[in-house]
Design a protein around this nucleic acid. Structure first.
Lengths: 203, 203
DNA sequence: CCGTTAACTTTACACTGTTAACCGAAAAAT
DNA sequence: ATTTTTCGGTTAACAGTGTAAAGTTAACGG
């Protein structure tokens, strides 16, 4: 590759190609040499701009987290009813998972032993997505502030429900007789419905 | 390795070593050469008894499925109440997942692109585990036989809930502030509670 | 014009799963 | 009893993988 005065140009090209390759073929076939070949440099050149393969992957994961965050925020636009907001968040998360399969996989499905620890600062940003759920749940109960811990747990329960469904779907473990979209509807209903149930109990 | 008259002896040794290695170090560090070294033969000898690495892994997955099946069946022993039976199944599944982490990972977490298709016959056996859930659900509703499809879907919803929780836990994506056991209790309660909710509605 | 800096490449290492060719001892056949 | 065949197991090799160390060469500062 020709010498490059602008030092960030190659870095951007690598990231672009990595993203494209990820989306097109999945993270399993993401190889340093393959990216390099497509970008027109050598595999070791990537190490000039990324500490290692994980570092490159972390950058992509972060991109995905930002996209998800924006999508979640967008889904709340103009929605006032607390329960409705929870519902919107769930559907939006689900939509993201189904429409950005490869992103979702590196973000939430990739086994951590495959990768070194996700950097603290990036984690903090990603964590905002979970907070969105927890906040929405707190709003449902009306009394904000208190019971933070319980809201966090409830957010995790909902997350686990949807993530589990997506995870089974992506890994093709759902029975063939299952209608995927109908199943996903049931999953969201169950995740949010559980709240309404508890809500009813409380009132 | 010395010549072996009994042809299945080496095969058993390989399988034993593979299982041990899986449990001790996880499927990521399962390598043909490593297994062979531990067993005292060469890597290519494994191909005399297993079609490829996936075939070997399938054998281990099947083992896990059988163990899970026995555990699930055992948990129902002497339990009559239909709702209780659902509860027992959930707790038993959860217990298996937490206590047999490495098995669970190859059984339910391993990305299918990592592996060739799970053989049909083995799948049929594994599928019995899901059927256990579906049957238990059907019993709750009282009217057995009808609504099979809905029971299957409900079983998947519950499965997704628990699997999601386990999956997030195993991949260390649960927030550090979450008490794992308490969280898992909430998850099971939610999964089964959802049934009771519906049950109440119906009556 | 020379010396330094730094962008990029070459080479190499230790791995991975897997195939093809080979070896040699046991079993079968003559 | 000697030859032939079978087959359990090994060796060598291929095409990959991520990555560290060393080498090259173009651009820039004095």
């Amino acid at each position: 590759m020709a010498r490059n005065t602008n030092p960030s140009e190659l870095r951007a090209a690598i990231l672009d190609e990595a993203r494209e390759c990820l989306i097109a073929e999945g993270y399993l076939s993401l190889s340093m040499r393959k990216i390099a070949r497509a970008v027109g440099c050598t595999a070791t050149s990537i190490y000039l701009y990324f500490q290692d393969k994980d570092d490159l992957l972390h950058a992509l994961i972060n991109e995905g987290m930002e996209r998800l965050h924006n999508q979640l925020l967008g889904s709340l636009d103009g929605v006032q009813d607390p329960v409705q907001r929870c519902h919107k968040l769930c559907r939006s998360y689900l939509e993201f998972a189904l429409e950005n399969r490869q992103y979702y996989e590196v973000m939430f499905l990739l086994h951590p032993a495959h990768m070194k620890r996700y950097p603290k600062e990036l984690y903090r940003r990603a964590r905002r997505n979970l907070d969105l759920f927890a906040d929405a749940l707190a709003a449902v109960k009306g009394r904000p502030g208190s019971e933070e811990k319980e809201d966090l747990r409830s957010a995790h329960v909902i997350w686990a429900q949807i993530h589990g469904a997506v995870s089974l779907h992506h890994s093709q473990r759902l029975d063939v007789n299952i209608d995927v979209l109908g199943f996903m509807d049931a999953v969201v209903d169950n995740a949010v419905g559980h709240l309404l149930c508890k809500q009813d109990e409380a009132s």
